[in-house]
């Protein structure tokens, strides 16, 4: 079985993994980081988005073995010292979540969007969230939150 070494939320991890183990399962089942959710089988929903080397990736469509040598950030790694990340704060302020199930993927994707395009507009947010489904909010508050979060991240 492949042995992989990676960093998850800044913590070094070495693990022997079954080849068929998905990155999402490594995080959830082996590392207990259950904030990363799995909502579909076909890469549409985006609840499983994490950052791999700073880029948003669907962790249910990546083998754990492929993550060897990478730096992973999950939703659990976003808040620092008990203080919510500005994007998390913006989601809360704007009521951009209801059941919360899509939220981790939605927030991780939004942080990546705002990092890549600090001055993004609503159209860019909509396009950027193309691979993240939410069934509760109707998206309007998510879009508002991403705009606000991006602004806060700019400082």
């Amino acid at each position: 079985m492949p042995v992989i070494s990676l960093s998850v939320n800044g913590i070094p991890v070495t693990a022997e993994v079954e080849p068929r183990l998905l990155l999402s399962s490594l995080l959830r089942d082996h590392l207990g980081l259950t904030g990363t959710h799995v909502g579909c089988d076909t890469s549409q929903c985006g609840a499983c988005v994490v950052h791999v080397d700073g880029k948003p990736v669907k962790s249910c469509a990546m083998l754990a073995a492929q993550a060897d040598g990478t730096q992973i950030t999950t939703i659990e790694g976003l808040a620092q010292k008990g203080k919510l990340h500005p994007m998390q704060e913006a989601f809360r302020d704007n009521h951009a979540l209801q059941c919360g199930f899509c939220t981790p993927g939605m927030v991780m994707m939004s942080v990546a969007l705002a990092t890549e395009q600090p001055d993004l507009d609503e159209a860019a947010v909509c396009k950027g969230l193309e691979g993240n489904l939410c069934r509760c909010t109707g998206y309007q508050n998510i879009i508002k939150a991403v705009m606000a979060g991006a602004k806060a991240m700019r400082g």
């Binding site: 904030g35 959710h37 939703i75 976003l78 919510l84 059941c99 919360g100 939220t103 981790p104």
Partner: peptide
């Protein structure tokens, strides 16, 4: 409830 949902500490 948002704080736990936003930090990945909800329990589904």
């Amino acid at each position: 409830e948002d704080v736990r949902f936003l930090t990945g500490t909800g329990t589904y």
